[in-house]
Amino acid sequence: MKASGTLVLALGACLSIVLAAVVRAEFAASKSRVRDETEMTLFPSGRFLREMSLGHRHLVADLGWLAAIQYYGKHRMTDRRYEMAPHLFSVITEADTAFENAYLFGALVLAEAHLLDDGARMLKEGVARNPESWFLNFELGFYHYIFMRRWEAAAAAFAAAAELPGAPEYARRFAAAAYEKTGDEETARKLWEIIATQSDNQEIRRMAEERLESLADS
């Protein structure tokens, strides 16, 4: 009698947990229908968060970053629409204006959503707020080059990046290549010359000289 009672209890417990999981899925679905879209618009503005975070604005930005990654992941697997992304990323970058990866990731997400101008604006905002960052300048150039095919803007951004402290050598190469595309061979040649004389890497020096020769040929 006792043993059978135990069995009934154990079975009942298992059954309820399983049933609960099923019911929970329905509950979660109904909840997320209401929530998902509303929730993101309710994401308070970055400035408000920054003031309210009482000195922990990086924390706020980090939390926003996690939310953004989830938002991206979820929509990437479903509808590939990222309507709330501009808002979300502007919140993060306002909370932490020096969060370079947030500008880049935001721009890439927007590019994926075919919101190219919004993405460029986001990176430009990053550059305006962090003029000393070679990384943001470089990525702005890259964005113009790859997604928008605006060679002038790309070349200018690459060149700006190359002049900034900490910039890697390849920034100048990208600038040179971009200038070739625009047809401004004069500037391109100047850049290749710098590379050919200053690079530590023999292979790169050789490559730069090749480029110079081919420019001279044309």
């Binding site: 209890l9 154990a10 417990a13 929970r24 329905e26």
Partner: peptide
Amino acid sequence: DGGQLLWATSYAVIYSVGVLLLSVLILR
């Protein structure tokens, strides 16, 4: 949302019943 209210109630009740059954099991 009435449907959601129903789901919310059922989830809490069923989950609690399961947990209580386990407690009885342990207490016995």
